Computed example of a mutant assay.
Amino acid sequence: MDGMAGLFEGGDQGSKAASEAEITKLHAKIGQLVVERNFLAKASGR
């Protein structure tokens, strides 16, 4: 019951750090996929 208010106030620092790490990981994956798409488009003559 002590930490219940924190759930509605934006969460704790641990969950924020985990979501920041997940966002960073997803941005890196998006960048990788964009590079691969551009390479394949160039290789196929588009």
Rank of each mutant, 00 (worst) to 15 (best):
F39Q: 02
S15V: 06
S19W: 12
N38R: 10
D2L: 14
A17G: 15
I23S: 10
G14S: 02
D12I: 02
G10E: 08
A21R: 11
K42N: 00
A28Y: 07
S44E: 05
D2C: 10
S44K: 03
V35R: 07
G11W: 06
M4N: 12
G10P: 03
G45H: 00
I30V: 14
E22W: 15
S15Y: 03
M1V: 11
I30D: 06
L40Y: 04
K29G: 09
E36C: 10
H27S: 09
E20H: 12
G11L: 11
I23C: 07
D2N: 12
L7G: 12
A21V: 15
F8K: 03
A17P: 01
T24N: 15
G10W: 02
L33H: 01
E22T: 12
A17K: 15
A41R: 04
A21K: 13
E9G: 02
H27P: 00
S44T: 01
A5G: 08
L26H: 09
A43Q: 05
K16T: 11
S19Y: 10
M1Q: 11
G14Y: 01
K16A: 13
M4C: 11
T24H: 15
R37C: 06
A18Q: 09
E9H: 05
R46L: 06
G10T: 04
A21C: 12
V34I: 15
T24P: 02
A5L: 10
G3S: 07
Q32N: 15
I30E: 12
S19L: 15
K25L: 06
D12T: 06
K25V: 07
G45I: 00
E36Q: 15
L26I: 15
A17Q: 14
G3F: 01
F8I: 07
R37G: 02
A17I: 12
M4V: 09
M1I: 13
G6T: 08
H27C: 11
S44H: 01
G6V: 04
L7R: 06
A18L: 14
H27M: 14
R46T: 06
V34M: 09
M1S: 13
V34Q: 12
E36N: 15
A28N: 13
G10S: 10
E36D: 15
L26Q: 14
R46K: 14
N38T: 10
L33W: 02
G31K: 01
S44I: 04
Q13H: 04
K25N: 08
M4E: 07
K29Q: 14
G6N: 08
L40R: 05
G14P: 00
Q13M: 01
K16N: 13
